[in-house]
């Protein structure tokens, strides 16, 4: 069924990660189609975050390959992968506590434009950077806190900044690691709206515990169990799969 032009946006081949005797990822061969809304689910300790860390270059795999648009990026550093178009958010906020949202977003944009090493210029003097910061603040509803230090922002705003910051890298592939984790129910819809509003041409890999989010958002689901790819398919197929129900979904869906 695959046409010649459909090189997957992101692909792993027999990816493996061992920590001493523990196998955190075992022979994971994952293929994420361009423009997909692909969800990665699995019980705690299934190796989801390990996989994301390998995809983004935080962890070096013990074996296997990672391909971005058909290009082998296994050996590249984290920051080099960002330049090639892969960005991520973190399950636990990883932000710059002392910077404001404006400065934080400005950093990512300047970096992308290659002006991040300019050492004799006042930041924010380039209209294209300022306009882009403005657009991001509006899109992710951060304009009202733009002058605050990130450390003092409400948790929900910090989660939005997490996504905005990854998005500021203009990724072709965006990895969202539990974007709504820990967000109070009242602020949840803001995060979900932001995720749902991501442009269609951006390929999204969503790591998520919350089955409501997964089934509203994803057009394809991979289930990871014990570091291994267990089942893959459309949301319907995965929901119907008896093995998935047995191992994982049973408890959370029927609850």
């Amino acid at each position: 069924m695959m046409s010649a032009s459909s090189v997957p946006a992101l692909e792993t081949r027999a990816l493996e990660k061992r920590f001493g005797g523990i196998v955190a990822s075992n022979n994971v061969s994952l293929s994420i189609a361009r423009g997909a809304r692909h969800a990665l689910i699995g019980p705690n300790g299934a190796g989801k975050t390990t996989l994301v860390n390998m995809l983004t270059g935080v962890l070096k795999p013990s074996g296997g390959e990672i391909l971005l648009d058909g290009r082998d990026i296994t050996a590249l550093e984290a920051h080099e992968r960002v330049r090639l178009g892969i960005a991520r958010t973190f399950q636990i906020n990883q932000l710059f506590a002392d910077l404001t949202p404006v400065e934080t977003l400005g950093l990512a944009i300047s970096e992308r434009l290659g002006t991040g090493t300019h050492f004799w210029r006042v930041p924010g003097t380039r209209p294209e950077v300022v306009d882009e910061i403005a657009a991001l603040l509006e899109r992710f509803r951060l304009a009202d806190v733009m002058h605050e230090r990130t450390a003092v922002l409400p948790y929900g705003k910090q989660r939005l900044l997490e996504i905005a910051l990854a998005f500021a890298c203009r990724p072709r592939v965006l990895l969202l690691d539990e974007p709504a984790a820990g967000v109070p129910e009242a602020e949840r819809h803001e995060i979900l709206a932001a995720v749902a509003g991501l442009p269609e041409d951006v390929t999204v890999l969503l790591i998520e515990h919350d089955m409501d989010i997964v089934f509203t958002f994803a057009d394809r689901i991979s289930v990871l169990v014990n570091g291994q790819l267990f089942v893959e398919g459309t949301p319907d197929a995965v929901a119907r799969d008896p093995r998935v129900k047995a191992v994982y979904l049973g408890e959370s869906l029927d609850a």
Partner: peptide, 20 residues
């Protein structure tokens, strides 16, 4: 400068700095 800002980012959170 943008360079100075990026140093503060590295100081503040090296993991995120490389992720952007």
């Amino acid at each position: 400068s943008p360079f100075g800002l990026s140093l503060q980012a590295i100081k503040g959170n090296p993991l995120r700095a490389s992720a952007v």
